[in-house]
Design a protein around this nucleic acid. Structure first.
Length: 469
RNA sequence: GUCCCCAUCGUCUAGAGGCCUAGGACACCUCCCUUUCACGGAGGCGACCGGGGUUCGAAUCCCCGUGGGGACGCCA
């Protein structure tokens, strides 16, 4: 049978890291087996779903490159079909009307909690052979409940957690249509997974408890039962659960923060799944390797430092032109104009091995395009009165030097030798004057890229500011 | 409370009864490289939740604890 997987987010917020991993695994499984990956938007909660959230999810998927083969399907556009199936269940006796008010239900739930038993619907409107149902109250629009089996158990072999068995006695008759006639989540999922021919349902393990209900409904509809794979959750960096108000961030935030999609993808792939000792691999490799057998059943804690390491790796590997285009935009965002400065690709080549994120990279090269703010601590340490005259002399020599890394290096070396100094004694003050700080790539290479005029202008400005010249 | 799930270095993980003196990666520490900081290279520190079984042999299988998490909506 052809593999068909789906990602089915509800558009009540952005695509966060947990959702992204679920989508990634679902996508990879379909790719691995030459199947189809379907995107379905579960927007039946009209009150909380927004078009902005739909767009945010689409944006996140697109940025990560998780392309879908079918969809996006919107459940709100399938209302007619859901209502048909509800009617079908009503007709077959697998569903029934329930006239309980929310207040009644709340009271029941509270009472059961107090008694220490699992809160569930007591079946007061459930039709039973020989049972006399109450008279439907006038003017109360009923909900529709699914008539769940009361005996036996639902058992399935979860592809990540193994066999799970839940007794039907634990389940109650869930509402499949609200009083206003709109179908609820558990029901729509069933109809869609069935009619879209989903073969493997890969989703978060907060759905484990919904699975037996869904299987029972699938049975009532005579549908084939898909396989289920329940992924454990991802915890925040601090080990705490991710939630709207704590730690959950949009995948697009990673984009903004300067992470490459390759890095995020590679990181997510290794969070809860493994292929021996392999750590760094492409998505093509991942799709070829991916399987459900090597997914960890336990929750995983997000680790930004490891993501940083991977991101640094992918920055080193990235196509320089792609990098330049991206960095260009980030510099603009920093208010830096690159038009009159050195070639961006050359500067990036010098800095790509020293940055964890694209934002770090952009920020650290800004001084090539605008005067740096001189770090006072570094200046105090390195711009000492004894070397300033030496630097002034060297600046004059630089005036007529061929402007290449090698020639510049030779001039610095000559200055060092002539004055009986150590190389850093000259390189460090130069670094502070030219870059503003005490850390940079080889100072000769930096100067070569910066250009003679700008370099000398910065050196002279520093000398003047020292008040000695 | 009831049901369900989970448990290897700080973190992500390898591990399918002997290959385990428990491997790799991130982080951390040391050294090397060096023109500073990084990068890179070489080392180091560091874990099988506890207790019972089963077995010649258990990180691995079973049971019980303990600890964590999830679910119990006219949310998804």
């Amino acid at each position: 049978m052809t593999v068909r997987t789906r990602f089915a987010p509800s558009p009540t917020g952005f695509l966060h890291i947990g959702g992204a991993r679920t989508a990634l695994f679902s996508w990879a499984y379909a790719r691995k087996h030459g199947g189809s990956f379907i995107l379905r938007i579960e927007d039946t909660d009209v009150a909380r779903s927004t078009p902005e959230a739909v767009q945010a999810i689409l944006d996140g998927m697109t940025w990560l490159g998780l392309s879908w083969d079918e969809g996006p399907f919107y459940q709100m556009q399938r209302m007619d079909r859901y209502k048909e199936v509800i009617q079908q269940l009503l007709d077959s006796g697998d569903a029934y009307y329930c006239y309980c008010s929310k207040e009644e239900l709340d009271a029941l739930r509270e009472q059961q909690m107090q008694q220490g038993i699992k809160p569930r619907y007591d079946g007061r409107w459930r039709p039973e052979a020989g049972k006399v149902l109450p008279e439907p109250p006038a003017g109360v629009p009923p909900v529709v409940r699914f008539k769940n089996p009361q005996t036996g158990a639902v058992v399935w072999n979860d592809l990540v957690k193994g066999e799970i068995r839940i007794s039907n006695e634990e389940l109650d008759d869930l509402i499949i249509a609200r009083a206003d006639g709109t179908p609820t989540y558990n029901f729509c999922v069933v109809v869609d997974d069935w009619e879209m021919g989903i073969t493997q349902v890969i989703r978060g393990d907060d759905h484990v408890n919904n699975t037996p209900r869904q299987i029972n409904m699938l049975h009532a509809l005579g549908a084939q039962i898909p396989q289920y794979a329940h992924l454990s959750m991802i915890l925040g960096d601090d080990g705490q659960k991710l939630s709207k108000r704590h730690g959950a961030v949009s995948v697009m935030q990673y984009h903004e923060d300067g992470y490459l999609p390759e890095a995020v993808l590679n990181y997510l792939a290794r969070l809860g799944w493994s292929h021996g000792d392999d750590e760094v691999f492409s998505m093509a490799q991942f799709c070829a390797w991916f399987d459900l057998d090597h997914i960890t059943p336990s929750a995983a804690q997000f680790n930004t430092e490891k993501l940083n390491w991977l991101n640094a790796h992918y920055i080193k590997q990235a196509d320089i032109n792609v990098l330049a285009a991206d960095i260009q935009q980030r510099l603009v965002a920093l208010g830096v104009n690159t038009e009159n400065g050195p070639d961006l690709s050359g500067v990036i080549a010098l800095y790509r091995e020293r940055s964890n994120t694209l934002n770090d990279l952009a920020a650290s090269i800004a001084y090539f395009y605008r005067k740096p703010v001189i770090d006072t601590v570094a200046a105090e340490k390195h711009l000492t009165v004894d070397v300033l005259p030496v630097l002034a002399g060297m600046a004059a020599k630089l005036e007529n030097t061929t402007w290449t890394t090698e020639s510049i290096h030779d001039v610095i070396q000559a200055t060092v030798t002539d004055n009986g100094l150590k190389f850093p004694k000259i390189a460090m003050p130069l670094r502070v004057m030219v870059t503003g700080g005490a850390q940079s790539p080889s100072i000769d290479a930096v100067m070569a890229l910066l250009g003679r005029d700008e370099t000398l202008s910065r050196i002279r400005e520093s000398l003047m500011a020292s008040g000695k010249f």
